[in-house]
């Protein structure tokens, strides 16, 4: 079972910026224990572009999270046998990233 694990930051109350060494160590563990599929931190929401080509011509605009207080700061994809395992890892991940974590299953 694959889960998308989103790291959610809050512009008005951001998590601390010194987490990278701890996150790297956590990633090493995820790899060693077979949960790791993918991980990536994301650039600021200012750097995002939305393309809408459902109409006559493609329209470009800023990302949907530019104005919002909470935004996606990074993602993981984990392989875990069930939600209990994923939630246990996410509980640790929240502490390690100093941010909220959303766990969402892939279809």
């Amino acid at each position: 079972m694959r889960y998308l694990v989103s790291v959610i930051d809050d512009k008005s109350n951001p998590g601390s910026t010194d987490r990278q060494p701890a996150i790297s160590a956590f990633n090493e563990r995820l790899i060693a224990e077979g949960y790791w599929v993918f991980a990536g931190g994301l650039a600021d929401t200012d750097a995002a572009t939305v393309i809408d080509n459902r109409g006559e011509q493609a329209v470009f605009s800023d990302g949907p999270f530019v104005e919002s207080k909470e935004y996606l700061a990074g993602v993981w994809v984990w392989e875990a046998p069930d939600l209990d395992v994923a939630l246990k890892l996410a509980t640790e991940a929240s502490k390690i990233c100093d941010r909220k974590i959303e766990v969402r299953p892939f279809l």
């Binding site: 079972m1 046998p81 069930d82 939600l83 209990d84 766990v103 299953p105 279809l107």
Partner: peptide, 14 residues
């Protein structure tokens, strides 16, 4: 079903 919440008795630790 979608998130696979398991159908089992939790481990002694949990």
């Amino acid at each position: 079903k979608a998130a696979r919440i398991p159908y089992r008795v939790p481990s002694a630790e949990d």
